[in-house]
Nucleic acid binder design. Structure first.
Lengths: 205, 205
DNA sequence: CTTTGCCATGAACGCCCGTTCAGTTATTGA
DNA sequence: TCAATAACTGAACGGGCGTTCATGGCAAAG
């Protein structure tokens, strides 16, 4: 055995540790339980039991239950914005609207738990945490608003009220996660295409 | 004072009573609190305190907390179906779709608590109660499905998939209650018209 | 006025909650 | 091999939970 040195980088782990296993597991279990039963109905003991640990151990990873919820929602919104930033934003407003529609549907279909929490558990955030999440959500919705306004200006879209249209389209697209099942009669691409057809017509493109 | 006899009918009240005050108050307070904070986060003691009564007294009106939730949801769905049955169902599919759209928006705007609960607290119902509510919801959505199918058959609508369109339209319309405020820049009629414009175009009419 | 019985009280039941913490275990670097 | 320390346990804290029930006040009926 050779004297291979420690893998460098940001590795700063000190002695005896496997927090890099338990930490993610806690977030993963909490995400699933919060989505299935709701924040208020899930106890720290229940999360701990599912992780395979005692309740007290959770507090090595989160200062309290509220932070656990906030971190999940915050992480989700930042991931969503980052993924959206990488997706295509070029072309005509119509092209961009199609890209947005397909991106929204496919991204959220892969993360049903996250979106469920992001929209259902807002009222369980403390006021300070709420404004942060609400701000990030606003940033995401602004992407769609911008596309709609550009389309109206270019004459591609005919919309009575772009602000209301933004809300309407977001609500419609979010609905997908409440009924779509991978094993069902439609593929995800089918669903994207059906929704895109309705969105396109709704904006008058 | 004359010997006016007891008001007849189904009056079967026996001796000393004001349950016809407390009963409705409990449902009213529970509805508001469940909508604002969520079923799991609202305790029986909290409901009782807001009604102005001790927790034990609630059990003169409901066998348990679960029944309180179920009765609120069940009552809401039956009222919704009854109101819908009275609304206009005549004319072309386009007429009927417009009537449905405007009915749905205006009915739900007047009952924001009810719809919030009906869509957010499904997971807090016992399995038996869940299937009942889900069945009533299906009946309501079938009204829209019927209109869409009729429009496709008559050639008025061009829809890739009426079943998916039903879900999409319902989601879109439900979204109104998450942002609409009476004091805001738009009247309810404005909102109805904006949404009807989008729905009409989305179905290709 | 007396009886009737609805309606509400308030204490109690056993249980679960979020969180803390002193002590134990397990893993690592030296 | 051993000291250092991260990770976890298990018990405890005060408090809230849904629900039950013996008790009593009080309005109406007779």
């Amino acid at each position: 055995m050779n004297a291979r040195s420690v893998i460098d980088g940001d590795m700063a782990r000190t002695t005896g540790s496997h927090s890099d296993i338990t930490g993610p597991r806690i977030r993963e279990v909490a995400l699933r339980l919060f989505a299935a039963e709701g924040y208020a109905a899930v106890s720290m003991r229940k999360i701990a039991a599912e992780v395979g640990v005692q309740a007290g151990a959770l507090y090595n990873y989160t200062p309290d239950k509220q932070s656990l919820l906030f971190d999940l929602m915050h992480g989700h919104m930042e991931d969503l914005l980052a993924a959206r930033a990488q997706a295509g934003t070029a072309g005509t407003p119509t092209d961009r609207l199609e890209a947005f529609t397909r991106f929204h549907i496919s991204y959220h279909e892969e993360r049903p738990h996250e979106i469920f929490i992001a929209y259902m558990e807002l009222r369980n955030l403390t006021p300070e945490n709420f404004v942060v999440i609400e701000g990030l959500r606003g940033k995401y919705e602004d992407e769609l608003s911008g596309i709609l306004r550009a389309g109206v200006e270019s004459g591609e879209f005919t919309l009575v009220d772009p602000r209301v249209a933004t809300r309407a389209i977001i609500s419609m697209l979010n609905g997908v996660t409440t009924w779509y099942r991978r094993e069902g009669r439609l593929s995800l691409t089918d669903v994207e295409t059906i929704y895109w057809d309705m969105v396109r017509k709704a904006v008058g493109a």
